[in-house]
């Protein structure tokens, strides 16, 4: 028979290993479920099929494309190669304007139509989200 001390220790180690495995599993699983992928308008054009998951689209707001109505805002995101129409009803950030970088989060309806649930705000005029910059540079 092992002593009480050893048993307790054994119990402790098993408990710790089990909880570590459990938490790793949980973390991985929910990462898989809750990750939001970033796409540029060109990526979407070349997309074979699209599911119902939430994505982010980044690029520049096209000049003269913002149209505002009482319940929604429409605009076009472009990466200077492909374009995508966005409709959005919600709060628009301060630095949202034509010719500026933008990241919209939401769901694709089809290849040229995107329904945004959120437009991400930035605090700095000079800041261009890294993804958007990459999208614009790959043109």
């Amino acid at each position: 028979m092992y002593g009480r001390k050893v048993k307790l220790r054994f119990f402790f180690i098993v408990a710790i290993i089990l909880s570590v495995i459990l938490s790793v599993f949980l973390v991985l699983k929910s990462l898989e479920e809750n990750v939001v992928y970033f796409k540029s308008p060109s990526d979407i054009k070349s997309l074979g099929k699209f599911g119902n998951e939430k994505i982010r689209i980044g690029g520049m707001v096209k000049q003269d494309s913002i149209k505002i109505k009482s319940n929604q805002v429409n605009f076009i995101i472009t990466d200077l190669k492909s374009e995508i129409n966005v409709t959005y009803s919600g709060v628009v950030p301060n630095l949202f304007s034509e010719g500026k970088g933008v990241v919209a989060e939401g769901y694709l309806k089809d290849k040229i139509f995107f329904e945004a649930t959120k437009i991400l705000a930035k605090h700095d005029e000079n800041y261009m989200p890294p993804e958007v910059k990459a999208a614009l540079e790959n043109k």
């Binding site: 970088g101 000079n126 800041y127 261009m128 890294p130 910059k133």
Partner: peptide, 8 residues
């Protein structure tokens, strides 16, 4: 090095 920002 995956450079990030669009600064002058």
């Amino acid at each position: 090095s995956n450079s990030n920002l669009y600064t002058p």
